[in-house]
Amino acid sequence: MLEIKNLHATVEGNEILKGVNLTINPGEVHAIMGPNGAGKSTLSAVLAGRDGYEVSEGTITFDGKDLLELEVEERAQAGLLMGFQYPVEIPGVKNIYLLKAALNAQREARGEGDIPAPEFMKLVKEQIAFMKMDPSFLQRAVNEGFSGGEKKRNEILQMLILQPKLALLDEIDSGLDIDAMKVVAEGINSLRNSQRSILLVTHYQRLLDYITPDHVHVLVDGRIVKSGDKSLAHELEARGYEWILEESAA
């Protein structure tokens, strides 16, 4: 599904990623953890196609395509969707509009026609109920005046409607209280299936109490220095990042 090979990336001339290698197969859930400044958000930004990040070396292949050759919107249309750490407020654009426009943009890219209105309504109603959001959110401007938890639920709602091949969730747990985290985790878990992959980027282990990853990677100073299964996350929780830093320095 996603293959990152020897990825080097610089921001304003500073090399942040220094040779990341990562392979995610269909149906797998991966978590990337790491201390602040390790390059987690740079990796997310490069995958999403944000401006200001220069890839100096390496390749990223997504679903057989050269991801770095794709525009931001083409990545989304191809099925790579990013859930943002800080979802942006978009005054004047209703949630319902964004959902429908985004869904139809994807369908168009796949050569399908617009989704029929009744089908769309049914889909939206089901998913908004699942995310325990009030239907009035649909008529509100995207994220405008939403609480932190509501914004994150809204990100997951978009995922549930747009059904990506790979969901990239950047610090999706930040700013969530425990109840909101459960709802968000439930939403993410419901995305799991044998074809869809999920990449969680997180500083804290606590999200992984609710979403069990198949693989956990530790990103330190622009490289993945350790990979393991979910027990690695628990070890990090218990021992912090220090021992890994020492281990990787040795």
């Binding site: 989304a76 978009i90 890219a109």
Partner: peptide, 12 residues
């Protein structure tokens, strides 16, 4: 906001 919309598949 432009980026957020594009990241949902809407062209620039």
């Amino acid at each position: 906001a432009v980026f957020a919309l594009r990241a949902r598949g809407i062209d620039e």
